[in-house]
Design a protein around this nucleic acid. Structure first.
Lengths: 199, 199
DNA sequence: CCTTGTGAAAGCATTCACAGCC
DNA sequence: GGCTGTGAATGCTTTCACAAGG
């Protein structure tokens, strides 16, 4: 039975081993004293807790470059996500195969969501279309939305929205880059450097 | 002079106004008691602190769907990022225009990085190519890397890497979704629900 | 007045350190 | 002996609450 210790896992993840043990303890008592954690059992327990063992049908709306990239992204299938349909407003795209799936017209949204019990929608449309698509998804029964469009969506209570801004990570890099090199010619108001911004 | 109070900003951002004021205070004392913050001045100070007022040339390596989506992403230019070049190993792609820029061959990497003083590289290649591209970028002088490939990169000290996993946000939505609906048939080890996972 | 800026208090998260168990 | 699980201690973040100041 292959096992792993909290010390090994912590070193691999770059965190403190006590924190890792305490975090695991919230999920239950899955280790063996003097031995460590049974790898297979641990993987299963964490997967189940995170919902990776369930099947999550999703629809992707807006099949431009980003929508196509998401449809092709290998990480989805391995984590329980199943692309139920690709939708786009452009009738010229209808029927074209992207990542092995035919693009379908946005007017099929309601029936696809209902037929596949879709509860999660991914929006990769231009900003201008995002709110309307959101409203239709919500009306059709979707209760979680992942928004890649650069706009803030309003949704009723009970619906979760997460917004992904592809430039935020770049901004964090630039922030650190500025610190590495620049410090000099930048007019700092009162000689003191604040301690803000994430790792 | 248009102003805004910490109370208004906090409500808009969904945070506590005292926290917002304390955060701002680390950047300096830019408000006026009894009045609030001068909007234009505040925007400038925050932009400067985050490095948005500087010009950041970046190269994007790997011009598939994701690379093309990034090249087209409007949010970059407005935040000081300038795409210095698009690079791909596929010679068939060379010269094709993406987002108004010609795709250039990966062998031009070194000269482009040097000529444009590029310090930030974006990797949108398949996983298999990512480490080699990273090594070349670092050797050419790049000190910050944004990695969209599903692989962990190793870099020397002094080089920053940030990894973006497009499925993590979906996973967080699925986690909440599981809570909303499921709770019932899931075998919870000891009757108690842990309090893990972000907002 | 009204709203900022900030000490002090309260609330969380991380780490230490060791009893408990295999 | 070795490693987990966890109270207690530490350190950090957020909020309270109010003096300072336009």
């Amino acid at each position: 039975m292959p096992t792993v210790s909290s010390e090994e896992l912590a070193a691999a993840a770059g965190v403190n081993s006590a924190k890792l043990r305490k975090d695991f303890s919230y999920l239950g008592s899955y280790g063996t004293r003097g031995v460590g954690y049974d790898v297979e059992y641990l993987v299963y327990q964490i997967s189940r807790e995170l919902g990776l063992t369930q099947d999550w049908p999703v629809v992707i709306v807006g099949i431009g470059n980003l929508g196509a990239a998401l449809a092709n992204y290998g990480g989805f299938a391995s984590r329980g996500f199943r692309v139920a349909a690709l939708l786009d407003a452009d009738t010229a795209l209808a029927g074209r195969l992207v990542a092995g799936l035919p693009v379908r017209h946005i007017d099929e949204l309601e029936s696809i969501v209902a037929d596949n019990q879709v509860s999660i929608g991914v929006i990769a449309t231009p900003a201008g279309a995002a709110q309307e698509v959101t409203d239709r998804l919500v009306a059709a029964g979707v209760t979680s939305i992942l928004n890649f469009a650069p706009t803030v969506l309003s949704v009723p209570d009970g619906v979760d929205v997460r917004k992904v801004d592809l430039s935020i990570e770049l901004q964090i890099l630039a922030f650190h880059e500025q610190r590495k090199a620049g410090e000099d010619d930048r007019p700092e108001p009162d000689g003191d450097v604040p301690a803000v911004m994430p790792a």
